[in-house]
Design a protein around this nucleic acid. Structure first.
Lengths: 235, 235
DNA sequence: CGGCTCCTTGAGAGGCTTCAATTGACGTGG
DNA sequence: CCACGTCAATTGAAGCCTCTCAAGGAGCCG
C-alpha cells in the first residue's frame, strides 16, 4: 500500500474550481486513484432530482456549479426548505455519516454540475486518509452553525428583513451590477421562499409588495432588481 | 509508540455510565493514557457557568449527569436557547472542530457532572486514533439533524403542541410515574421555554394555561404533573 | 418588612394565516 | 388562432394568534 500523500499536481478533484477547499485532501496515492475512478461528474438540468427523500444514502455529492435545494417533505403534505446548496458545498454527507437513508430530497434549482462519490469509495478513502474525516466533520460543524443561526433568526426580527436578506443572499452568486442595479432571476418559487422563511406563500407576496413600495427592490414574477447600495449596507 | 488499541477493560472513560457510547473509543493505548491524564471530572451546582460566549474553544465536554443549557446572546439583549444537553451528550465540540471561540454559553440547569477534555489532548487523540474523529463527525451529524428538525417544526403546527412536546421531552429523563401521573420539576424558566420556542414569555404562560384547561397537564410554578397516557400517545 | 425576581394577567394593536376567488403565463388540442 | 386546463402568483376578507406595554401577584432573601 502506497502511503505517500499525493501532491498538489495530482489532486483528486482535477481541474475543479473548488479543489483548494476540497474535503478530499490530503489523501494517499491509493485513495487518489480510487477517488479518480470513483468520481463521477454529472451535468444536470433545472428541476432535476438528485436523490429522493428516503433513498439510501450511498453517495456524497459536491456541487461545482449551479444551485441545489434540499427539501424535506412532511406527512401532512407540507414541505420545508432545509438548505440551499451553493457551488463548493457538499451535500448528502449527513446521510453518509449516519449511514441512514436521506431524510431530505435534493433537486436542482438551475442547471448544475455535481461531483458524485459513492459512499463505498468515500468510506475507503476515509479509512486510508483520516484527515478527510476531519474535513467532513468541519463541514458538518459549519452547517450546524448555519442551521442554528437560521433557527435563532427565524422568529425575532420582522420577516420583511429576513425576506430581503434571503433575496440578497440569492443574488450573491450572480454577476455584479451593470448600472448600479443588480438584476437576476430568482431561483426560488414563492412557495420555496415561504417554506424557507416559515411563512405562507401569500405572506411572501404581500411582504414583497411592501418591500417594493418601500423602494428596497423591484420584483416582477421572478425577475428581481436590487439597488446596489442596498446590497452593501448590510454587510 | 504503542499502536495497540485498548481493550474494553481499560476504557478511557472508566466507570462512566456512557462509556458504551463514548466517542473516545477505540483509541490506542497511548491515547488512552493521554485521555486518562487529560480527563477531568467536574461536579457542578445548578446555574453554574461552564463556558461563556466568546471564550476560546479549548475544551470538549461530555455530560454524564444533570442538564446543561446552551444559550446564545444577541446584541439586542435577547438571547436564544440553542440546545439542551442531556447526559451522554457531548458539547463544545463545534468550537473545537472549527477552532473558533464558543458562540454560545453553556450553563448548568441543575446540579451536573461533566467530563472535560482539553482541546490539546483531544487533538492528539484524534491524530492517533482516527476513528474518534469519525465518532465526533457522527455526533455532529446527529446534532445537525436535530437542529433541522427543530427548525422545520418551528413554524408550522401550533405552538401549543410544540410547547407540550418540549415539556414531555424534559420529563423523559425523570423517573417513571408512581400512580399514572408523571411529576417532576421543570428545569427551565418561562423565559427559557420562550426562547427555545421563539415566543414571548407571556405567550408561554398563556399557552400553558390553555393546555392546563384542556387537561393536557397541570402546572404550578415549575412543578409539573403530566398524565401518563399523554406521554405515550405521541411516540 | 422591603426589595428582588419570576410569573401572571389584562388590553390594544398588528401581523400572519386560512379560505376563496382572480389574474396571468404557458402549453395542449380542437 | 383560439378555447381550455394547469399551475404559480396575487388579492381580498375574516379571524386568530402573538406581540408589546403595563400593572398586579407570588415566592425568596436579607
Amino acid at each position: 500500500m502506497n502511503r505517500h500523500f499525493s501532491t498538489e499536481r495530482d489532486h483528486p478533484c482535477g481541474a475543479c474550481g473548488f479543489r483548494a477547499t476540497s474535503i478530499w485532501w490530503p489523501v494517499t496515492r491509493d485513495c487518489r486513484t480510487r477517488l479518480e475512478r470513483g468520481f463521477n461528474r454529472r451535468q444536470l438540468a433545472s428541476e432535476e432530482m438528485i436523490y429522493a427523500q428516503g433513498a439510501p444514502g450511498d453517495t456524497v455529492y459536491c456541487l461545482s456549479r449551479g444551485l441545489v435545494a434540499l427539501r424535506s417533505m412532511r406527512p401532512d403534505g407540507h414541505y420545508s426548505f432545509v438548505r440551499l446548496v451553493r457551488p463548493g458545498d457538499i451535500f448528502g454527507f449527513r446521510s453518509f455519516l449516519e449511514m441512514q437513508p436521506h431524510d431530505t430530497e435534493a433537486r436542482t434549482l438551475v442547471a448544475s454540475r455535481v461531483c458524485v462519490v459513492a459512499a463505498r469509495d468515500a468510506r475507503a478513502v476515509v479509512e486510508g486518509s483520516p484527515r478527510v474525516m476531519g474535513n467532513l466533520a468541519l463541514r458538518c460543524a459549519e452547517e450546524l452553525r448555519r442551521s442554528r443561526q437560521l433557527r435563532a433568526h427565524s422568529r425575532r426580527g420582522d420577516n420583511r428583513a429576513r425576506l430581503l436578506r434571503l433575496i440578497r443572499d440569492l443574488s450573491a452568486d450572480q454577476g455584479p451590477d451593470p448600472d448600479g442595479i443588480l438584476r437576476f432571476r430568482l431561483p426560488l418559487s414563492r412557495a420555496d421562499i415561504a417554506a424557507a422563511l416559515g411563512l405562507a406563500p401569500e405572506t411572501v407576496t404581500r411582504s414583497l409588495r411592501r418591500l417594493s413600495e418601500a423602494g428596497a427592490l423591484r420584483i416582477s414574477g421572478r425577475q428581481v432588481e436590487l439597488p446596489a447600495q442596498m446590497v452593501e449596507q448590510d454587510a
